[in-house]
Amino acid sequence: MLELRLTQAGLLKKVLESIKDLVTDANFDCSATGFSLQAMDSSHVALVALLLRSDGFEHYRCDHNISMGMNLGNMAKMLRCASDDDTVTIKADDGSDTVTFMFESPSQDKISDYEMKLMDIDSEHLGIPEAEYQAIVRMSASEFARICKDLGTIGDTVIISVTKEGVQFSTKGDIGTANIICRKNTAVDKKEEATVIEMAEPVSLTFASRYLIAFTKATPLAGQVTISMSYDMPIVVEYKMETMGYMRFYLAPKIEE
């Protein structure tokens, strides 16, 4: 028996909207730790790791570890039927091939049930070791989204270079080149506008812009984004959800031919 109650359906809606275009089908794993998902995109270039911690739920009952295969597009369709301030309850009986999403309006005057078919997904689970990254940048999530979108219109790849002074995003395309430097800056009006750099070594890596753009669909989840890079390692783009957990995107770099 599984029963998870979350007061803000809006959060789950945002989570689904941020990954449904990157990953078609995925297993949601439910354990004492929380409600989690790990999935690669179809070309195995990017990986999504989501954790919604059990203590972030209003009610969390998971009798034993269970894995539920879901089509994320269909799940997103069902969640779009909930209002952001509805309470959502996710329910599944042991051995059942369906999951139920129940939405309750804040005044309890509207209660809806959506039952969705589960699917068998044979997915590969990767072990991601805890790593010390050579460079970590924390910056405004909306600024990062803007940069990825702007550079994506000019070139297919983005070079991200971190130095002590700042982070530089560069691209090159048929029409020309573009460079954006975001300097380290903590003297800001709003905490989320700060650009903080922790760096052991300068790092410069090249990534496909379309994946970075896809990751920024998670921007509504957090004010800041954390970008972690090391040479010869996938970049990690993380959106931390206050009290709830995180959405992490891993992207393998491109290398010179």
């Binding site: 690669m40 070309s43 195995h44 270039v45 990017a46 990986l47 590969e124 689970h125 990767l126 072990g127 991601i128 070791p129 070139g155 297919d156 790849t157 090159k172 090249t206 496909a208 390692m233 996938p234 891993y250 992207l251 393998a252 770099p253 491109k254 290398i255 010179e256 031919e257």
Partner: peptide, 14 residues
């Protein structure tokens, strides 16, 4: 513009 590496080249199956 470069060779795209795969995520499975970095992380192993568990």
């Amino acid at each position: 513009q470069g060779v795209q590496l795969s995520i499975t080249e970095f992380y192993c199956s568990t």
